[in-house]
Design a protein around this nucleic acid. Structure first.
Lengths: 335, 335
DNA sequence: AAATTAAATTTAAACGTTTAAGTCACGTCG
DNA sequence: CGACGTGACTTAAACGTTTAAATTTAATTT
C-alpha cells in the first residue's frame, strides 16, 4: 500500500516548509502566503491527490468531529430511521457518526460508551437503557456533551429530545373510548424507562379511576416478547371480562400482537379494536387500516443532532429539554 | 471539560518516564518493568481513570481500527440488518464501524468514500452503486482493502460477498412454472448492477426461449418506484395477454407491488401468483403466506467482515469471491 | 544610510501514543 | 579485575497536523 501523501510530501515537492503548505491548504483566506507559492502548492496537492489526515487533525485539535450514536438495535426500523436522519444531519456539519447497539442492556451500553470514548467521539446521542443512570451521570461529571433521545431520566438533569408520551397515549386511549370501547387493555414493556411509564400513565388517566383496573395492564419483558405477548393478549381477551380494545405500547409489540390476534381469528375492529404506538410498514398490509401514534421521527433526530452539536460547540449552553408532539393517525382499527 | 488523563499524567504521578508507563499499560507480558513499578503504574492508571487515546494510537500505527460501511440506505431494513451484523462482528475484532448511505447515487458514494478515507478507515464494506466502477478501481489502485457486498462488478477483480442471484431467480421462476403458471412477469429495477441482471437472466432462462418475451420484463427506476411500479404492474396484468404470476426482484418492489395488487383487488394466488426476492416483516401480514427468496443475511455480512479484516491484516491475500446460496421459502402465493 | 514596517516564510512545540536504541547500575564469569 | 550480560529504565524520534512566535527579506520612511 503506497503511502498517502502528507503535507510533508507537498512541502518537499514545492520546496517550502510544512507550515506554509498547511496555511495554504487549511485556511480559506490566503493568510500571508504569496499567490505564486499558494498556487503552486495547490497544484501539487491536487496532483499528488492530497487528502488531509483527519486523525492527525483530531489529535492536534482534540476534536474528532465524530459523534457516537447508541441505539437499542440498529436493525429495528425505528432506530434505523433515526440513524439515517442523524447521519444526514451530522454530515451537513462535517461530523461522522459511529453507531452501536445496546440491545437494551446496560452492560452493553456501558461498554459501548467506553469504546466510543476511546475513539474520542466529541459527543453522544443515546437511547438510554434501563439501569444506565450511572453511565449517564458519569458522562455528565466528565462534561462530555450528550443528548438523550426517545427516553430520558427525569431524575437526571440532561439534554433530551423526546415526544410527549403521556399526551400521545392519553389521546390514543381517549380515541378508543370515544368510539365506544369500554374495557381497554394495554400491552406494554415491563421497564422503568420513563417513555413507557408515561405511556402507561396516559392510558390509565384517560380511562380514569372508575374504569381502570390492574388486569388491564399487561407488561412483557424485552427479552421474552415472542413468548409473552400471546400470554398477555390471552389475559386480556380470555378472562371473564374480556377487553374490547387493546393499545399496544410500541411498534414491535403491535406487530407481534397483531400477528397473534390473527392467529386467534379475532377480527379488528369488530371483535377487538386496536391502536399501536409508532408506525410500521406492516400496518399498510393489515386488512384493516390501523389507527396509530406517529412520532415525528425526522424532527426528533434532527433536533437531537442540533442540540448535541450546539453543546459540543458551546459546553456551557443551558440544557435543552425538548418535547415534541406525536400525531394520532386515524384508521378504522380504533372503531 | 477537564482534560482526560494521558500517559504523561500517569508518568508524572508515578515518577517514571512516559515510555515505562506505555510498556506497562500496552504490553501483555511485563516486558522489562519491575513488578513494583508495574503495579504502581496500574494503580495510578486505574485511579485516574485512564483510557487510551485511540486517535493517538491510530496516528502512531497508521491503523484506525475502523471500517467504513457504505450501503444504499441504512433505513432500509435489508441494509439495517446487514449493518447490525457487521457492527457485532467488527466489534469482536476490536473494530469500529462508520456507516454512510449512498442512496444508490454514484456521486454520494464517491463523496462518502473520500470522507471516510480522510477518517483513515482501514477498509471498506461497500454496496456499490451503478456507475461507481471508477471509485472501486481507484480503491484498488490505492491498495485500500475493501469488499463488495450484495453486488459486484464482474469486470473488476475484487473481493466480494454475494449470493447466487441467477440460481435463486431461476429456482423461483421454475417454482412458479411447476405450479402451473404460464405467463410469468417480472418487476425489476432498471439498472446495470449485476445482481439485478443476474436475477433477470435467471428468470428469462427459467422461462426459456419459447415462452419469454420482452413484455414480461418490467423495469422501474430507483428514483421513481412509487409512481412506476403501478405502471409496471398494469402493463403486466392489463394487456391482452395478462400474466398469471409476478416475480418481484426485491423487497421494496415486492412491498409496494403487493400494496398495488391489493388496490387492484387482485387476489393472491387465485388471480395472480407472486414470489418476492428478499424477506420482509410485512410478508407475515399478507393475507396469503408468501413464497419468497431468503438471503442468508447473517452469513453474508459476517463473511464480508472476515474477508475484509483478513485483507486488512494481509494485504497480499488472494481475492475472495464468495457466492452464497439463497433459499426459496415456500408459501402459498406461488401456487 | 539607518531605522521601521510589512509581507512571506520558517521554526518549533504540541497533541498522545509506540518503540528502537541508549544508558546505567549491578551482578557474574573467566 | 576487567569484560560482559542483564534487568530496569529513559531518551528520542516518529506519526500528520496546527499555530504562535521567530526569522528573513524587501520595501518604505526618516
Amino acid at each position: 500500500m503506497k503511502k498517502k501523501t502528507s503535507l510533508k510530501d507537498i512541502a518537499k515537492e514545492a520546496g517550502v516548509s510544512i507550515a506554509t503548505v498547511s496555511y495554504v491548504l487549511s485556511k480559506q483566506e490566503n493568510s500571508g502566503v504569496s499567490q505564486e507559492v499558494s498556487d503552486r502548492i495547490k497544484d501539487i496537492a491536487k496532483r499528488l491527490n492530497y487528502r488531509p489526515n483527519q486523525i492527525a487533525k483530531s489529535l492536534q485539535s482534540g476534536k474528532s468531529q465524530t459523534v457516537g450514536l447508541i441505539v437499542a438495535d440498529i436493525s429495528n426500523p425505528f432506530f434505523a430511521q433515526i440513524a439515517r436522519i442523524v447521519e444526514d444531519e451530522a454530515k451537513k456539519y462535517g461530523y461522522t457518526v459511529i453507531f452501536g447497539s445496546s440491545d437494551e442492556k446496560a452492560t452493553k451500553s456501558h461498554d459501548l460508551i467506553k469504546f466510543l470514548l476511546n475513539r474520542q467521539v466529541d459527543g453522544f446521542i443515546i437511547t438510554p437503557t434501563e439501569g444506565s443512570e450511572g453511565q449517564i451521570e458519569l458522562l455528565k461529571e466528565q462534561n462530555i456533551p450528550f443528548v438523550l433521545i426517545d427516553r430520558y431520566f427525569p431524575s437526571i438533569d440532561t439534554n433530551y429530545v423526546a415526544i410527549d408520551n403521556y399526551k400521545a397515549a392519553f389521546d390514543a386511549t381517549k380515541k378508543l373510548m370515544e368510539n365506544g370501547n369500554k374495557r381497554i387493555g394495554m400491552v406494554a414493556y415491563s421497564t422503568e424507562l420513563n417513555h413507557m411509564k408515561e405511556r402507561i400513565q396516559g392510558h390509565k388517566d384517560a380511562l380514569g379511576k372508575g374504569i381502570y383496573d390492574e388486569s388491564l395492564l399487561q407488561e412483557v419483558a424485552f427479552e421474552r416478547i415472542v413468548e409473552n405477548i400471546p400470554k398477555a393478549i390471552n389475559n386480556l381477551v380470555k378472562g371473564n371480562e374480556p377487553v374490547d380494545a387493546i393499545f399496544f405500547a410500541t411498534n414491535t409489540l403491535g406487530v407481534i400482537g397483531l400477528k397473534y390476534l390473527n392467529e386467534l381469528k379475532l377480527q379488528v375492529p369488530d371483535d377487538i379494536a386496536v391502536i399501536v404506538f409508532d408506525e410500521s410498514e406492516v400496518f399498510h398490509f393489515f386488512y384493516c387500516p390501523l389507527t396509530y401514534v406517529k412520532q415525528p421521527l425526522s424532527d426528533l433526530a434532527k433536533k437531537a443532532v442540533t442540540v448535541l452539536l450546539n453543546h459540543i460547540k458551546n459546553p456551557n449552553a443551558k440544557l435543552d429539554k425538548v418535547k415534541l408532539n406525536a400525531q394520532l393517525v386515524i384508521g378504522n382499527s380504533s372503531n
